[in-house]
Amino acid sequence: MFDKEMTEKNSVAPGHNACSGCGLVLAARLVLNAAGKDIIVTTATGCLEVTTTNYPHSAWRVPWIHSLFENSSAVASGIEAALKAQGKADKIKVISQGGDGATADIGMMCLSGMFERGHDILYVCYDNEAYMNTGIQRSSLTPFDASTSTTPFGKYSFGNPTNKKDMPAIAAAHHIPYIATASVAYPQDIEKKVKKALQIKGPKYLQLHAPCPLGWGFKTAYSIKIAKLAVQTGLYPLFEMENGVITSRKKLARVLPVEAYLKEQTRFKHLFVSEDGKKELERIQAMANENIKKFGLA
């Protein structure tokens, strides 16, 4: 088959205004293609929403609704309840999406409510590690020492002073049946995890690492390469957790030093210029080592 029809099957149509090399829309396309056509999708405010729905156009080829920044999961809850009342809940799946800010900061309350009430929804968090849509401000999923526009590096600062919020652990504290992390570097893995999640009844949480060339500062062609390095250095562990037990993890054949991941990005370049930066690098390496130990990656 050598025709463009193949591209017409994508649930996210081309022509959207996402930046060249965007990891986020790539992730969204992979997730929705894996989910099939019998879905209803809600999306919180963020890059994903503003780039795909420039009035009067829409890039979505599946039923899609935009909510506010904070209530993507609450809108999805309502849709799921309505489907249940109409007896269509078995046939139509509900997917709720948001960026890292919409998930871990602004939408936390509604997300927690969704988990707690046990709605049959797959929540997908596209983690590009800052508020990219409004100009790269830090979110609570921004990693330690990353320079953003609200945590710039300088004489007295190495960038973001806090650690990445452990969202999968927060989701796990709600005792939901399925939690997974994935990365755009492993497209088949995303497909597998989304398909598996949609088979399970109850609230599901999927966190996807999606590099942003603009916000992180790297060449557009390196999106997948950077995402892969984050996994291979142990800074972004990929695992699946079912009913509170980790059932699978992405084993690392070769663990790379964190420098391999950090030096590729301008948001971390200040760590490589001074002696004090070396100490910070050691701290980040310690975090990676802890991840590797905790999840048994090596």
Binding site: P14, G15, H16, S20, Y55, P56, S58, A59, W60, R61
Partner: peptide, 16 residues
């Protein structure tokens, strides 16, 4: 609302 997939009218190839 926008028609499903109507963003195809926006030919982003010119960015290249």
């Amino acid at each position: 609302y926008g028609e499903p997939g109507s963003s195809v009218q926006n030919k982003t190839g010119s960015w290249r």
